[in-house]
Nucleic acid binder design. Sequence first.
DNA 1: AATAGAAACGGACCGTGGTCCGTTTCGACT
DNA 2: AGTCGAAACGGACCACGGTCCGTTTCTATT
Lengths: 195, 195
Amino acid sequence: MSNPLPLLTTPPTERRDAARNREALLSAASELIRGCSVEGVTMEAVAAKAGVGKGTVFRRFGSREGLMASLLDHAESEWQAAVIGGPPPLGPGGPPMERLLAFGESRMHLHLQQGALIDAAGRTWGENYAVIGFATMHVRILLAELGVQGNLPYLATALVAPLSLPVLRQQFGPAGMTEEQVLAGWGELVRRVVG
Amino acid sequence: MSNPLPLLTTPPTERRDAARNREALLSAASELIRGCSVEGVTMEAVAAKAGVGKGTVFRRFGSREGLMASLLDHAESEWQAAVIGGPPPLGPGGPPMERLLAFGESRMHLHLQQGALIDAAGRTWGENYAVIGFATMHVRILLAELGVQGNLPYLATALVAPLSLPVLRQQFGPAGMTEEQVLAGWGELVRRVVG
DNA sequence: AATAGAAACGGACCGTGGTCCGTTTCGACT
DNA sequence: AGTCGAAACGGACCACGGTCCGTTTCTATT
């Protein structure tokens, strides 16, 4: 008997072979990264290592950038989980200002750690609403908890922006700042915005 | 007689044919953009239109991204000139706060206008110190004129960051802000930072 | 004007991302 | 089990960015 109301119960299901292949391809890509570097992650190499055809890789991930974004998703999901349900100061429970500062620090570290992958993912990642949207919304909520009045949506994006990889690179590179200076700077920015 | 001190007088001079070709290639690329779009600017097409070999394009600009960055340089130079020596409120002469707000608005418009080109130039442009460095330094100077105390280098980068193309795209797209809202938001950010 | 050496040129060549379409596999329903 | 339509697969194929190296062109010097 077919479900007469395939609403929320059936998130357009994925065929078994498709799921297997997606898994195999992600593992293959991870292993290739471990073996060499992100440069070595060629679509053909990934396909070969996973034992599937090249077309399958593109069918699953759309593009090389899409594949990279999928790899990033793992780290991002873990990070989001830590924000939502992990221990303080990043997770819930502590004072909002401490949470906010912990947010900045951990987000910065996440971006620096995943730098090569973020580059390889290009706009697929950087303009992904689910990613930027989560971080921005989180900051917005914390600002509200801190009693900040004003254009919270904008202020949230403005606080998240300087944590992006290109900005961090510019600060650590040409501007010659240290990690401590950048973190202190972001903290100062937050304090001024919160008022 | 050769110059015994070829220090500042000889910025490693460029051969005539090389200069001609650089010029021809830039025109060809501009025309191709006008004709179709940035996608149509193929290295081979540019070379053919300029009547040179493909290798020459790479010799001059290093890569496709480098070529795009060179195209951007024209607009950027004009903008920098307007900041340094143009009429107020963007140029010198007006009150610092008005200059700062004019800076934000014109920078935003520049990024939006050149969006396709900025994308095509990739990191070659976005992480170019001469570009980000100028904008950041300008903001830093204005903050100093406004009597702001604290970590000016960082605060300057933090004010420039939300004017970057990816952030603007996110604001205009998923976040659904209007141009007025974004400008007002940036102004509010500036006021809070200045204190 | 002749020369020599450095710099620029050109286009064949290669690797990789991305597409296309005929073939195979899955799984829902009988 | 058998059938059938939809979904996934595979790998030949294409286009474009980037490299390489033998050839040509410039310019400084005599």
